[in-house]
Design a protein around this nucleic acid. Structure first.
Length: 258
DNA sequence: TAGCAACG
DNA sequence: CATCGTTGCTAA
């Protein structure tokens, strides 16, 4: 295989990162979803520019860049910094809220509640909190338990091994069932953030309970699935592990029935 | 049971 | 890339 070339970096990536950071703060901490959208829109406009922005005239009139954001970009161009961003970074409460949102299932609403009502300021404090299990629903408890593992990318080779097991065991259950790994793995990625499985059955009006059956088998017979986050008739979200020496991984199984 | 929160 | 469908939780 040809050596993988490093993707040419966007000439304005630092500015784009700053805008994303401002956006996240508005969404997670200030709870201003419209400001969040405005920053995202501005960032995506700038991402389309293929040369390094030299002056404010390069972006004046660009879609999604109004007075307020233009002023911040001006600050960035002249000083390399954005005051608002520096202020945000100095906000310890805001930092705590952002930490909480690292946990799967904890969004802006719950993160704010944990920090403002329970005065929790870090992941460690959340872990050791006496009321931890009352403060978090089941999804969030799993998210906290596996936080560091879920933040690790899954090497392609590991997904390949999982693919072998999944395809074998699912077709063994019913030889009409077809399973395939989709998502970034399917698109050739060398590492993925989760495993995305698509299961189809050619027969019409097949029982919706088939997904439950698949999940039950992979859990009880093979101990491949270790936890269920949510399960309905068409979508399973959970946790799996190829063997006990490997990390726990996020897995989604979608079942398409006609 | 509706409506919110979170995920992908 | 954002919007929307699916799922779970909880207040009413």
């Amino acid at each position: 295989m040809a050596a993988k070339r490093k993707l040419a970096e966007n000439p304005n990536s630092e500015l784009i990162d700053f805008l994303h950071e401002l956006a996240d703060y508005e969404k997670n901490v200030s709870r201003m979803i419209h400001k969040y959208n405005a920053y995202r829109k501005a960032a995506s406009s700038i991402a389309k520019i293929d040369h390094k922005i030299q002056s404010i005239t390069d972006i004046k009139g660009l879609e999604g860049i109004g007075k307020k954001i233009a002023a911040k970009i001006e600050q960035y161009l002249s000083t390399g910094k954005i005051k608002k961003l520096e202020t945000n970074r100095g906000d310890e409460t805001g930092a705590a809220i952002n930490q909480m949102t690292r946990v799967m299932g904890i969004g802006p609403t719950h993160a704010n509640k944990l920090v403002h009502q329970e005065k929790i300021t870090s992941i460690d404090e959340l872990r050791s909190h006496p009321k931890r299990d009352q403060l978090l629903n089941k999804t969030q408890q799993l998210g906290l338990k596996y936080l560091e593992e879920f933040e690790q990318k899954i090497p392609r080779d590991e997904i390949k091994q999982m693919e072998t097991i999944l395809l074998r065991e699912i077709t063994a259950m019913d030889n009409l069932l077809r399973a395939e790994i989709v998502g970034s793995y399917r698109r050739g990625a060398t590492a993925s953030s989760d495993i995305d499985v698509l299961v189809t059955h050619p027969a019409v009006a097949k029982l919706p309970s088939l997904l439950h059956k698949i999940v039950e088998t992979l859990t009880k017979q093979f101990h491949f699935i270790t936890d269920t986050i949510s399960i309905g008739d068409s979508k399973f979200m959970g946790v799996c592990q190829i063997d006990t020496s490997k990390l726990h991984r996020r897995i989604d199984i979608r079942y398409i029935f006609n």
